[in-house]
Design a protein around this nucleic acid. Structure first.
Lengths: 103, 103
DNA sequence: AGTCCTTACGATCCCCGTAACAATG
DNA sequence: CATTGTTACGGGGATCGTAAGGACT
């Protein structure tokens, strides 16, 4: 599980549709579909029911959605908080290399 | 930022030492060090002060630590919750391919 | 045929680990 | 010189996108 997987899951849950979720994230469908499958595989439970119109949440999916939203919200809060604290104590970083394992 | 970065950060914060943090996670030092640098780069603020004995949290680091712990706790809770809901409704997955974007 | 989601496949990029650096006591 | 954290570099694996497949209406 990664934050990307969680993002994909929330988008699909909210759109009820892998294609729309992908468009909303400015990416293509297959990776999103794979993210959902990966989560289902990791949990050992289906999160969505596949219908001709798209994806509808199953109970396990509903349960996960609540946690997923909290996780993403917490990440956002972390970024903002640290940025503010950092702004309060403006520490200029010493111009660093560019690999950095992706940040 | 990824869950791995956050894990590394918490370990380093708790150990005050990149080496010990790495050993605790059964991995090597350089990636952990890079994770911290990546986070600092992303936040535009230093999280640790480097001392001859190791790493000591700066205010921005203290602020992030609280969020980081909540994020990891929430991820854990998500896993357990969904596994339980899944167990309540034992859905056997239809034996799936093995790529799955890593789960 | 039109819509879905999924699988195959190829190419790229991420990211780990080993080894070499740098800095400090 | 022994400790610390950091940077270089190479290889393996993850993950993207295009294209093809399969199911259902």
């Amino acid at each position: 599980m990664s934050l990307t997987h969680i993002q994909s899951f929330v988008a699909v849950a909210e759109e009820g549709h892998v294609g729309r979720a992908a468009r909303r994230l400015h990416l293509t469908q297959p990776p999103r579909s794979r993210h959902i499958l990966a989560l289902e595989d990791e949990f050992g439970a289906r999160l969505f029911e596949r219908t001709p119109q798209g994806m509808r949440l199953l109970p396990a999916g509903e349960a996960f959605l609540q946690h997923a939203r909290r996780i993403l919200a917490e990440v956002d809060a972390a970024v903002h908080t640290v940025r503010n604290v950092g702004a309060a104590r403006p520490v200029t970083l010493p111009a660093r290399a560019q690999e950095l394992d992706g940040a």
